[in-house]
Amino acid sequence: MTLVAAQQWMAEQRHLGCSVCLILDSLDELTARNGLLNNRAPELYCSIYRETPAADMADKGPFLFLIDNPEDEHLSELLKAPERNWGWLASVAPEAGLQALVKHWRDRMIFGVRPHRGIYRFHDNRVLARALQHLTTVTVAGYLGPAISVCYWQGEHWETLGNPAPGNHPVPESPIWNDFPMEADQRASTREANAHRYLLARHLEAYARMAEQQDPELWLSTLLAQANTWGWQAAEQLEFLLVQRLKATTDPLAQRWQARPGESPDAHFQRVFQEMQFWQGDGLL
């Protein structure tokens, strides 16, 4: 890897005849996203989640932009603040265009099987950096796909990496990048970000009402800490806890929610789930 300023990398890629793409995590960068969308032709951008199983989060998920103006003020503002972890940059062959990169990541964004499916946060520069740190020269091509080169902030400085074999690659049956270890703080940050996106996409009104009564970040981190204490890590367990607490944001957890001595996390969850169904008139004890 080489260390180079993002602006210099873009200039080098354009000099080589490559097109430059911005992979943007738009949820926390709505101003930049909307600015980049303004008067931009439809073929120059795409919402990754649209036309996928995560389509209900399309407006708040990652966007890919083909950068036709490297001096764009909104892009410049992003490059001045890489510590916001807004995403990363990639270059592609002009004939491949934006859609080749879109298809590549759509094919790789969903991992796991029901009911434990998840979304791979490829658009997070920290996720990209961690993957590139662990991948070998042989496997990096299948990860980057049509990207000829990538430029990303790795926490302290910009880094770039060239793809040894850019092009279309089949998705491995068990992609190794889904299993790379994360530091505890990275796992917590990723889980909180995913929970935040889920609530915005599926329970926006209730989430907004809760935010009027208390600090949403504290509320969310407290619940996720509770889930961690109970060993509730599966997606349906977290969703159940979050949705139920949205229904009673000001009430303390009832005693029946607490784990019993010797009760496994799965048994604990099933008991509370069935009890809540009963009390809400949706099931039998």
Rank of each mutant, 00 (worst) to 15 (best):
G145S: 06
T190R: 15
E236D: 15
D179R: 06
P175G: 13
D185S: 11
P146C: 06
A206S: 14
A225I: 06
T229F: 08
S189E: 15
L238H: 07
V138G: 06
H123P: 02
R187P: 00
T160W: 02
E156Q: 13
A201F: 08
A227Q: 00
Q154P: 08
F180L: 04
L200V: 14
R191E: 13
A206L: 01
F180N: 00
P146K: 11
M109C: 12
R114H: 14
A193M: 15
D124I: 09
F122M: 09
G142V: 01
R209K: 09
W219Y: 08
T139G: 13
H157Q: 15
L200R: 10
P115G: 10
R114S: 12
Y198H: 14
S149T: 06
P164I: 09
E183K: 14
S149M: 04
R108C: 02
S174A: 12
N178E: 15
Y143C: 04
L135H: 11
Y198K: 02
G155C: 08
N125D: 14
L238P: 00
Y120K: 04
V102D: 06
A100H: 09
L218T: 05
D185H: 10
H157V: 13
I110Y: 10
E159T: 09
W219I: 01
L204A: 12
F111S: 13
L200G: 00
D215K: 00
A96N: 12
N168V: 15
V113W: 01
A100W: 12
P175C: 14
V102Y: 07
A235H: 04
Y198I: 05
L161S: 12
W158Q: 06
S189G: 14
A225V: 05
N194G: 08
W105I: 07
D107N: 04
Q99T: 02
P170D: 07
C151V: 03
A211C: 02
E173L: 14
E212Y: 03
L132S: 11
Q226V: 11
H157F: 07
I176S: 13
L224N: 13
I148D: 07
P216V: 02
G112K: 02
K103N: 12
R121F: 04
L223D: 06
G97M: 05
A165V: 03
T139C: 04
F240P: 00
Q99L: 10
T229V: 13
P146N: 07
A100Y: 11
P166N: 03
W153I: 02
P115R: 03
Y207L: 06
E212W: 01
H116Q: 13
Y143D: 01
N228K: 07
A129Q: 03
W158R: 02
H104L: 09
A141W: 09
Y143P: 00
V138H: 07
A165P: 05
G118C: 11
I110S: 08
A225Y: 03
P164R: 04
N178D: 15
R114C: 11
